[in-house]
Computed example of a mutant assay.
Amino acid sequence: MKYKKNSKEDFIKLVQSEILTSSEVLEELKVSRQSLSSLVKRGKLTPIKELPRVRLFLREDVEARKEIAKEIQAKYNTVLMNKQ
């Protein structure tokens, strides 16, 4: 693949900022490895590339999942407050 001047560097910056490894996703979502596997199996989060010991995810997909998790937590907290 041929790159124009700076395009390789730009591409590297893009990948570094927009692609997350499984470990980074675990930190971002504050979930266990088992929970991440469950999210993937249930189609709630889709890796863009899977290798035997590595999964890569788009940051925007992880951010979207994070927002969904916040909404679910808020609903759960509301239900708990109403039961008290």
Score class of each variant (00 low, 15 high):
S37I: 06
E50N: 11
E28T: 11
N82S: 08
R53G: 14
K41R: 10
R59E: 04
A64K: 15
L26I: 02
R33I: 07
E50R: 12
P47E: 02
D61Q: 03
E24H: 03
I19P: 03
I12Y: 15
F57T: 02
A74T: 08
N82P: 03
L45N: 00
I48L: 15
K5G: 00
K8V: 00
L39H: 12
P47W: 04
S23K: 10
T21R: 14
T78P: 00
E50P: 08
E67K: 14
K13H: 14
R59W: 05
K2T: 10
F11C: 04
Q34G: 13
R53P: 12
F11E: 05
T46E: 12
K83G: 01
L20T: 00
S17L: 03
K13N: 08
S23R: 11
K83I: 13
E28V: 15
K5E: 00
M1G: 14
S23V: 12
L39R: 09
V62E: 03
R55A: 10
K70F: 14
S22C: 05
S32Q: 06
K70I: 05
R65I: 04
T21V: 09
K75D: 12
K66A: 05
S17Y: 06
L58S: 10
K4Y: 10
L29P: 06
E50M: 10
L80Q: 09
E67V: 05
P47L: 01
V15M: 05
Q16W: 15
K2N: 09
V54P: 02
S35Y: 13
V62C: 05
V62D: 02
L56A: 12
L56K: 05
M81I: 08
V15T: 09
K5I: 01
K2L: 10
E71V: 05
F11R: 07
K41W: 07
K75S: 06
D61Y: 04
K2S: 13
K70Q: 13
F11M: 15
K83V: 05
E18I: 10
K13V: 02
A74N: 12
T46S: 15
